[in-house]
């Protein structure tokens, strides 16, 4: 009985993890400017990584493989955020201005495609 439950759980996790990974990549394609794409990358970096690693851990069972997977997961979890921040801050420093809401008039700035190439 228990193996069936574990199988179902890891199926769910891997399916949703794969879905979030694809959604993050599609977001990188669809979003209009660099600053929005940062957020799309963070979807596949957090939800995709966590769910896929957890699904693989359930399949591996209590072995050394699970420990390795957890180390990989923790590392990706920390460095994903750090490199996203590093990319954003490098872009800001080199003069890629982020779109900012205009006071009261700006209801929706998704059409804003203003992108100046870096120095």
């Amino acid at each position: 009985m228990l193996p069936v439950i574990i199988d179902i759980l890891s199926w769910i996790m891997i399916l949703t993890g794969g879905a979030f990974t694809i959604i993050g990549a599609v977001g990188q394609l669809r979003f209009p400017n660099f600053w929005a794409r940062l957020h799309a990358a963070s979807v596949s970096d957090s939800a995709g990584v966590i769910l896929l690693i957890a699904g693989m851990c359930l399949q591996a069972g209590p072995t050394l493989i699970t420990v390795k997977l957890l180390v990989i997961g923790l590392f990706l979890f920390v460095t994903g955020a750090t490199s996203t921040h590093a990319t954003a801050s490098a872009a800001l420093v080199s003069g890629l201005t982020p779109p900012v809401l205009k006071q009261k008039s700006g209801e929706d700035n998704s059409a804003d495609k203003s992108e100046k190439p870096g120095s």
Partner: peptide
């Protein structure tokens, strides 16, 4: 994640970047 997913798959994007 769910919020951003809704934004990504929505046919018309409503971003309020700030």
């Amino acid at each position: 994640n769910w919020e951003v997913t809704k934004l990504i798959v929505a046919p018309k994007m409503r971003l309020r970047q700030n």
